[in-house]
Simulated scan of single mutants.
Amino acid sequence: MFNSPSHQDCAARARSWQSAPRAKPPLAARISASAGFTLIEFMVGLTIGLVVVAGALSWAGQSLAAQVRQRRSWQLHQELRAIASQLQMELRRAGAHGRPSQLVWRADRGASANPFTEISASGGGWSGASSGTSSSAGSSGGNLGSSGTLRLNRALDRDITQPDASTEVTFRWLDGRLDQTIGGRFQPWTDPALMQISGFSASVHRVPHPLGPPCAPAVETRTVQVLLQGQSTQDPKIQQQLGLSVHVRNDPAPIASPDPALAGGCP
């Protein structure tokens, strides 16, 4: 015969079930029940992160490109300054005589004119429009020419009293470079692989200064003005101009003589 459990048995079983440890829920149930990001939130966060990274990379690229342009512009400026320094040195020596004492009048032998005073400039221009620059003698644009020369004479040896191939110095602008005569032959002065000379202009300004009355002889002062334009070979957009003005020291002067008629003075 089936005996139903007593009230005491049911209470004991209830107490044992409550005190027994409960099994943990499955892993999927625990993950879904815990706090976290949804798929939409994850995609929004990923998009924002990508935008921030793209902006940082773009800024870094622009900063690096600006630094490279600045370095190339500085190199171009230094190259032009080196050329201008050499030109200035040669122009200041223009007209130098090997024996300057022969140019001074003396009663026993007279005097002779300085044969090294000739200086000339021809041609010149710009192979393209100038775009942004550092200039101290003005700027010019347009296709005005593709070649130019600046020619002078000077004697560096005391035994040289007449011009020859060794005393003539010519600077030539041709095919984007500057050449200089060395030993009577043109030698490249600049490297087109590093810098293109896109503009060259030279002019000689002569000013006479009378030594006395209107019919008296005059001393002629000469000023040479040179304007250079360089262009970076690596970045043609980088261009700079540099100008210099040099007063030639050895000015042509009349032969001094105590007789005004011999000296070109008034009769």
Rank of each mutant, 00 (worst) to 15 (best):
W126N: 00
S127N: 14
G128M: 14
A129T: 15
A129Q: 14
A129L: 12
S130E: 10
S131I: 13
S131K: 14
S131N: 15
G132H: 09
G132E: 12
G132Y: 08
T133L: 11
T133W: 03
S134I: 11
S134V: 11
S134G: 12
S134H: 10
S135R: 05
S135I: 03
S135F: 03
A137P: 03
A137Q: 09
G138R: 05
G138N: 06
G138L: 03
G138P: 04
G138V: 07
S139N: 09
S139W: 00
S139T: 13
S139G: 04
S140C: 04
G141R: 00
G141S: 14
G142M: 02
G142R: 01
G142A: 01
N143H: 06
N143C: 02
N143M: 05
L144I: 02
L144E: 04
L144N: 04
G145I: 02
G145Q: 03
S146C: 02
S146N: 13
S147I: 03
S147P: 06
S147W: 06
G148V: 00
G148R: 00
T149W: 00
T149R: 06
T149M: 05
L150V: 07
L150H: 02
R151K: 12
R151P: 04
L152T: 05
L152D: 01
L152R: 02
N153F: 10
N153S: 09
N153K: 11
N153W: 09
R154Y: 13
A155R: 04
A155N: 06
A155L: 08
L156D: 14
L156R: 11
L156W: 07
L156M: 11
D157E: 14
D157G: 07
R158H: 08
R158F: 06
R158V: 11
D159E: 14
D159I: 12
I160V: 15
T161Y: 02
Q162A: 12
Q162N: 11
Q162R: 13
P163D: 08
P163T: 10
